[in-house]
């Protein structure tokens, strides 16, 4: 399965959900996905396009656009394409459906994104901080909106 075929199949199945689907090279592709339908798209990727391995989930804070982004990196063990699937979330209410029912290993990746960015993953089985101490919850240390960024940390310990 090659990258143009994958993107075509994806945009044909979800014409209103997928936007800006582009192939960067023979083994890399990216697309924006509507946040309401992110999980369904993941399900389709896994079932029909052999994307059976979730590499990572991460958040990015775009402070100028006043938006957060969730980036899923999805790869396959059967073909070499890695897909970067991005969902844009508003800063006030960053909520997205959890991908855990599709990819079991999304559990820890989403917990990490939650504690660092404050992105809520709806229907996540255990959305608790993973690495940070419990009392840092709510500081969202990788967001860029606090005073003194980037030299200060969220709690201004340094």
């Amino acid at each position: 399965m090659d990258v143009t075929e994958i993107l075509k199949s994806l945009t044909d199945t979800f014409p209103e959900v997928i936007s800006e689907a582009t192939a960067e090279s023979g083994i890399r592709a990216r697309a924006y996905v509507d946040r309401e339908k992110a999980r369904e798209v993941c399900q389709y990727l896994k079932d029909s396009l052999q994307f059976d391995h979730l590499c990572s989930v991460c958040g990015v804070d775009y402070i100028k656009r006043n938006e957060l982004e969730v980036v899923y990196h999805i790869a396959s063990y059967n073909h070499p394409v890695v897909l970067m699937l991005k969902a844009v979330l508003p800063r006030e209410n960053p909520e997205i459906e959890s991908a855990v029912p599709v990819y079991w290993n999304a559990n820890w990746y989403e917990r990490e994104t939650y504690e660092l960015f404050g992105i809520m993953f709806k229907n996540h089985p255990n959305l608790k901080p993973l690495i940070l101490p419990e009392d840092m919850l709510g500081e969202w240390p990788l967001r860029k909106d606090y005073k003194g960024f980037p030299n200060a940390t969220a709690r201004n310990l340094v």
């Binding site: 590499c55 980036v71 990196h73 890695v82």
Partner: peptide
């Protein structure tokens, strides 16, 4: 860009995002 390499312990994934300045916008390491 995403980059994957086989480490002694397995697959490591780097996601880098530049923003046209000398600093990176985001670096994610799995």
């Amino acid at each position: 860009a995403i980059m994957r390499t086989e480490q002694p312990r397995g697959e490591v994934v780097y996601y880098v995002k530049g923003n046209g300045t000398k600093n990176l916008e985001r670096l994610k390491i799995r």
